[in-house]
């Protein structure tokens, strides 16, 4: 590599792959520790949290999704997770998020850093363990030395499968 030009993106701290990866790990850690309020605080006011139904689904407005939350619905989702009579999470799931294959795209979108990653979530509840494997796309806003999430899309490999309810945060 010596002598060749270093790509401009890697000079910009906003595009620092290590920092971005550390941030995604931080997000995963908040979910697995069930600190959903702190997790929600990572998201911007215009955020979207989206688990599409179809592979390469173009948009969340004209095709149904497993989950499609704007800020309002995401707040309701998180508030519900703290409610004592949430049957689908009584007892709560234990989850383990593993984030890998992090790729920071060279070009931002809408002024936001685009990050692609693989995510495997293991869930244990009521004597059963399930796996949710998916490709993730984050759009991150650099803010105050860290990031906020404007968009998270999780394309589960079995999104069109016959799944039991998915009450956890992916």
């Amino acid at each position: 590599m010596s002598g060749s030009a270093v790509p401009a993106a890697s000079m910009d701290p906003a595009f620092d792959r290590a920092a971005v990866e550390a941030f995604l790990i931080h997000e995963a850690d908040l979910i697995d520790r069930r600190d959903f309020e702190a997790w929600l605080a990572l998201y911007t006011d215009d955020c979207r949290y989206w688990v599409p139904l179809e592979e390469d689904q173009a948009d969340p407005q004209h095709t149904v999704s497993l989950i499609y939350d704007d800020r309002k619905l995401l707040e309701t989702r998180v508030r519900r997770l703290g409610h004592p009579r949430i049957h689908a999470q009584a007892p709560p799931s234990r989850t383990l998020h593993t984030v890998a294959n992090v790729i920071v795209e060279p070009e931002p979108e809408d002024g936001r850093i685009v990050v692609r990653s693989s995510q495997i979530v293991a869930e244990y509840r009521q004597n059963r363990t399930r796996l949710f494997a998916g490709r993730c796309t984050h759009r991150l806003e650099a803010q105050g030395g860290s990031y906020r999430i404007a968009f998270k899309r999780i394309d589960l490999i079995d999104s069109e499968g016959e799944n039991r309810g998915i009450p956890i945060i992916l």
Binding site: D45, P60, K72, L73, T76, R77, R79
Partner: peptide, 30 residues
């Protein structure tokens, strides 16, 4: 009874928070 948690969460939801319409429909149904 079954939906107690989503009813309570929706009732406490601030209507002024940002939505693109989808959250609006969902919160109303809850």
């Amino acid at each position: 009874y079954v939906h107690a948690s989503s009813i309570a969460a929706a009732n406490e939801q601030d209507d002024g928070r940002p939505t693109d319409g989808a959250g609006e429909v969902a919160v109303r149904q809850m």
